[in-house]
């Protein structure tokens, strides 16, 4: 029986506390935005979730490169863990983006570069999981996953730029012009502080979740090996 390492417990506590502080700041410390009202407060966790999503996908690409170089299965486990967490937080990012867009731009969905790129990114990594599901041999699954994580992550900035050029030539009609103008606001010091604390809290949460997911992956690998040993 392996017990949870001390450092992991400490990290869980730290992440939980930081998240509580950030939530408290969002609810009680951050000022109410003058035009948009309360919905603007979604922004803090929206940005933080987007940050964690990018962190996860970027880490998966790095783990992919590391796997192809070293061929150690631990890197593959890290890659899947990072992608899975990235997917959860990118989904949060997209959904909160839509919730913010509804009262501010008067529509659930706009083809705004960031929102669109985030959604396409989500699809890339859903495809990543589907690719892995289709391959039984663990070694090959790891190799293909690594390749796709690298290719997918490279395409993200290109997608962003292509949509952004697209939008500057064809301005968004909805919301009366450039979406960065409608719903833009000046950050007060309190807002900046809240955003920073949210970013730190989500980063800690990411690390704690990643560690847990990595342990889950290791356990899965052990079970898989036991099963293979029994079958032979």
């Amino acid at each position: 029986m392996s017990t949870t390492p001390r450092a992991l417990v400490a990290m869980d506590v730290a992440a939980g506390l930081a998240l509580a502080v950030a939530t408290g700041m969002v609810f009680f410390y951050a000022p109410l935005e003058r035009v948009m009202g309360a919905v603007q407060k979604v922004f803090y966790f929206h940005v933080a979730a987007g940050w964690v999503g990018m962190l996860g996908f970027g880490l998966a690409a790095v783990a992919g490169i590391a796997y192809l170089v070293t061929r150690r299965s631990r890197w593959d486990l890290l890659g899947v863990a990072a992608v899975e967490i990235g997917l959860v937080f990118t989904l949060i990012n997209v959904v909160t983006g839509m919730i913010w867009a509804r009262p501010v731009w008067n529509t659930w969905w706009t083809w705004d570069p960031r929102l669109t790129t985030a959604t396409i990114m989500e699809l890339v990594y859903v495809a990543y999981l589907m690719l892995r599901q289709g391959i039984e041999d663990p070694e090959r699954r790891a190799r293909f996953g690594a390749v796709y994580a690298i290719v997918g992550f490279l395409s993200v900035p290109l997608t962003f730029f292509s949509i952004r050029i697209f939008r500057t030539i064809h301005p968004v009609v909805l919301g009366g012009g450039d979406p960065t103008v409608t719903g833009a606001f000046a950050m007060t010091p309190r807002m900046t502080q809240t955003l920073m604390v949210s970013l730190v809290a989500f980063s800690l949460l990411f690390m704690a979740l990643l560690w847990h997911r990595l342990r889950l992956g290791e356990l899965g690998e052990r079970v898989e090996q036991l099963r293979l040993k029994l079958q032979s």
Binding site: M36, A38, V42, W100
Partner: peptide
């Protein structure tokens, strides 16, 4: 400010 508390709450629930 516009009354957008419902959106705010929905956001954090999600």
């Amino acid at each position: 400010p516009a009354n957008t508390v419902n959106y705010f709450i929905t956001g954090y629930v999600i």
